[in-house]
Design a binder for these strands. Structure first.
Lengths: 155, 155
DNA sequence: TTAGATGCAAACGATTTGCGCGGAA
DNA sequence: TTCCGCGCAAATCGTTTGCATCTAA
């Protein structure tokens, strides 16, 4: 998938920040307008290496003044449709999002507090995507792998 | 995880059916009552190798007469708490459930129609659970791996 | 008899939709 | 000026909770 989007194959540790300007440019190139909310969302996503929940993004507008949920959802849908952002299930009620960087990451999720930590290790599933496609006849195979456990803080 | 629950390490292909009586016995041993709904739910779960959505389980009571959602959710929670059933995210709005058989399976989900197919192949993530625990300090590590793609029917 | 299950109704939280207005191109 | 994106309000959908009733043990 590295070829699918124009992001640099950053040397990770864990994911070098992309300059906001480059991100904005990519968005504009994808046909999005450079709005206030877009800037804020990109800022937040870029600052976090681990997936960010919708709730956290809701604060994008500023203190004490959450942004409109409908607008936020629509923006994220657009970003996802353009391949700029990745939506992650995490087995929680609310979805999480990350910037689509040049490479793939997996996560550990705390069963107690819901905290998400980024794993910096080779993904064992990536190489199987092709095989899964061959075995099942599915096209365009992708995957999502999460580990669940209890984080140090919770016990 | 094979030791965690008293299910036989069936020779798969794909997952030999367990006799309903054995399942019921396991439930009773776990402290559940052998109610009508429990029987129906077990029947359905046992018939399907792939994860079953809540919506499908809702028909558990019979034709044209869906069972009460609250009751169903509560039953599934109990089953999951006792380790008899496994809840799976699948990145969908509604949760899916499978019987916890003696061993682990992964799935391919169609991005278009939501169909879930069971994968009968060695899981590459299982052996990493321990390593993830060591690296992150998380305890009791478990995982969930899903592949996503477009199924043959959808294109 | 009695703790565990059920059914119903109502509450909740996440996500979606319709619509008129405002701002980026 | 023209669309795209926004804010607001209301609708949907999945899931949870409270409570009175029922029932398997």
């Amino acid at each position: 998938m590295a070829h699918a989007h124009p992001h640099a194959e950053a040397s990770c540790k864990i994911c070098a920040e992309e300059p906001p300007a480059a991100l904005l440019a990519a968005c504009r190139a994808a046909g999005l307008r450079r709005t206030h909310l877009l800037r804020r969302v990109l800022e937040i996503l870029q600052r976090q290496s681990a997936p960010v929940s919708i709730r956290e993004l809701s604060a994008a507008r500023g203190v004490r003044d959450d942004c409109d949920p409908a607008t936020l959802y629509r923006l994220l849908q657009r970003l996802e449709a353009k391949g700029l952002v990745r939506r992650i299930g995490l087995h929680e009620r609310a979805a999480h999002y990350t910037l689509r960087r040049g490479h793939h990451h997996d996560y550990v999720v705390c069963r107690e507090c819901g905290d998400v930590a980024l794993l910096d290790m080779a993904c064992p599933a990536q190489k199987l995507e092709r095989e899964v496609g061959r075995r099942t006849g599915f096209k365009d195979v992708d995957h999502e792998l999460q580990f669940y456990g209890v984080c140090p803080k919770c016990k």
